[in-house]
Each structure stands twice: as structure tokens, then as C-alpha cells.
Amino acid sequence: MKTKIAFSPCPNDTFIFHAAVFGLVEAPELEVTYADIDKTNYWAARMEGPEIMKVSYAALPWLLEDYRLIPCGGALGRGCGPLVLTQEKLSKPSELAGKRIAVPSDRSTAYLLFRLWVKQEIPAGIGEIVVMPFDEIMPAVKNGEVDAGLVIHEARFTYQNYDLALLQDLGNWWEEDTGLPIPLGAIIVRRDSKLEGIENWIQASVQYAWDHPEASSNYVMTHAQEMSVEVAQSHIDLYVNEFSLQLGDDGYAAVESLLGRAMEDGHVPLFDLELLRK
């Protein structure tokens, strides 16, 4: 019987899981569903979807009673945070007070970072939050449908094409504030699953990808959503790193800091932080 797994079609995920999907390392036979984390977050919250899924770290407070965090295969990093963009360059963040902001999800690390930044930098608070698909946000900012947009993924490398201005790199803000990497995407497995050795084959797949980077290129580009080869490679370089191989002390500290602060501010439900390591 095949092991069912869901991860995104983004280059970092296809790069990481290529070897496992195609049997190039010792791994169970996989049946893959390609889905962005805005879908898998809600599948997991409803106990739907495959046993193993890629979700946002920000969704874990809703999930940890039913799912276990796998300490590899995910995405944490430095210099890879979401961006706050505006149509015209603003002199200071407080100019966004009371304004209409587009975000890609309300259960994402990007959103939690944004809310924590707003609390610190915009004491008067912002106005309406509009959730829309991430690929529609930059056009909405450019066309004046919203006053600012929170962007993720390859938008880090393409926002200049829309003549937009960078107000804040939330990754830089987070790293300066905490000294920790940014927790983005997590791999989880249902706690009632009988699957064993998940960490081993994911780590083997990551290592194979690093040792044979050219092997996954066709697979990555097939699912790269019309990205150029250069943008796809930049995506991989940012999001596949030592934390993809092993979360480690800094990785766990980053997740605990983000979710602990978000819980204190009421952006996520109360939950037991110790479940992150169990």
C-alpha cells in the first residue's frame, strides 16, 4: 500500500522530496498530492487529507493534538521572510495605520509575523485585512485595490516587476528582534499513524538532493508554476538548508518563540508548547 503525502508544488518541496518520490533512496512508495499550505492547513484541522502533510508552522496550534511534528523536511531559514509592499514608498510603518492590507492566509507564519510586527511598529493598528491568493496580491497593490500587501514565495524576487515599494522585510525584522531563523513550513504526520522511519527517509531524500542537484531539475521545473530556472533555484537556495535536514535547537527555539508570542497576543489558540517536541 502506498504512503500518502501532500506537499506544495514549490521548488523547495519538490527538490526535497524528489528522491523519495522516485525511489532513489530507501523510502516507502509514495502517492503525492500537490497542494499549497493554505489547503493542507485546513485539511489537517479537519483531519482530512494524507497521513503526512506539509503545513504552515503557524497552523500547528490547531493541529498538535492530532499530528506530530517531523523535525526535518520543512522550511526554516534566514533572509527568506515575507515582505510588506506598498504602491508608493512610505517613510515609516505607522503610515499604514487604519489601512486595508491584503494577506495570503490568516493561518500562516507570514500572517503571524505581520501581526507581531504591527503590534510593535503600528501602535494605532491597521484597518481591514483582506485574504486573497498570494499571486493576486501584488496586482491588487499596484491597482490600488488595497493599501499594502503581504507577499510570500517567489514574490521576494519579482515584486520590482510591479513597480512596488518595499516597506518591511519581515524576515529581517524577526531576525533582528530574536536572532532566530523564521519557521515557515512544517512536515506533520497523524499521531495515530503506524508509519515508521519517516525522519530517516526524508533526511535521505534531502541529502540525495544536495548530492545530486541536477537529478531533480526536470521534476522541479515541471511543478514550478511558470517560474524561470533562476527564480526556482533562488527559491531552493533560500528554503532548503540545514533546518531541512534537522530542526535542531535553533529551529525548535524559533518555532517556540513565534508560536509562544502569537499565543500570548491571542493570534492562535492556547496549546501546550511541549507538544512540539513530542
Results as ranks from 00 to 15, higher is better:
V131G: 00
G98R: 10
G74S: 09
G49C: 09
G185Q: 07
E196L: 14
S94E: 15
K39H: 12
R115D: 02
A59P: 11
E230K: 12
A110E: 11
L64T: 15
T158L: 14
S91H: 10
A224L: 12
G266L: 13
L85I: 14
S8K: 03
E95D: 11
E264W: 01
Q225A: 13
S105E: 07
E230R: 09
L247G: 05
V229M: 14
A19S: 13
I5A: 03
L112A: 01
Q233T: 12
Y67S: 07
F243C: 06
I16K: 14
I198S: 08
L63G: 08
L245Y: 12
P9Y: 07
L247C: 11
K4Q: 15
V189M: 13
N143P: 00
K142L: 08
D237H: 11
A75W: 00
E230T: 12
G149A: 09
P82K: 06
G77N: 08
P139C: 05
A215V: 08
H18G: 02
Q87V: 01
M138P: 01
E274R: 08
L60S: 02
E128M: 09
L116D: 04
V118Y: 00
V189N: 10
D66T: 12
V25C: 06
G49F: 06
S205P: 11
H212W: 01
D192E: 14
D272S: 12
K89Q: 15
Y162S: 03
V240G: 09
G125N: 02
K194G: 12
V268T: 02
Q225C: 10
C10R: 12
Y67I: 09
E26F: 04
L245C: 01
V151H: 01
G144Q: 05
P183R: 03
L180V: 04
E29W: 09
A186M: 10
N161F: 07
S234D: 11
R277K: 15
A6R: 03
L76D: 04
V231R: 03
S234T: 05
D237Y: 08
D66A: 15
I187A: 04
I137T: 01
P82S: 12
I188Q: 04
P11G: 01
G179M: 06
Y42H: 11
H223Y: 15
D36T: 02
P183K: 02
Q120W: 05
L83I: 06
F114S: 05
E199R: 12
F134I: 07
D169I: 07
E226W: 10
W201Q: 08
A140Q: 04
R156A: 09
P50Q: 05
A209R: 07
A44W: 03
G125T: 01
L275S: 12
E154M: 04
D36L: 14
V84A: 09
I202C: 07
A6G: 07
T109S: 11
L96K: 05
D36F: 15
E196Y: 13
A19Y: 06
P93T: 08
E136C: 05
E128C: 04
A204L: 03
T33W: 07
E128K: 15
L112F: 03
I126S: 02
H235Y: 15
L85Q: 08
R107Q: 14
D38N: 13
A253L: 10
G179E: 00
I188A: 04
S228N: 07
A19N: 08
C10V: 11
S193H: 11
E199G: 00
A204E: 13
A45E: 12
E214S: 14
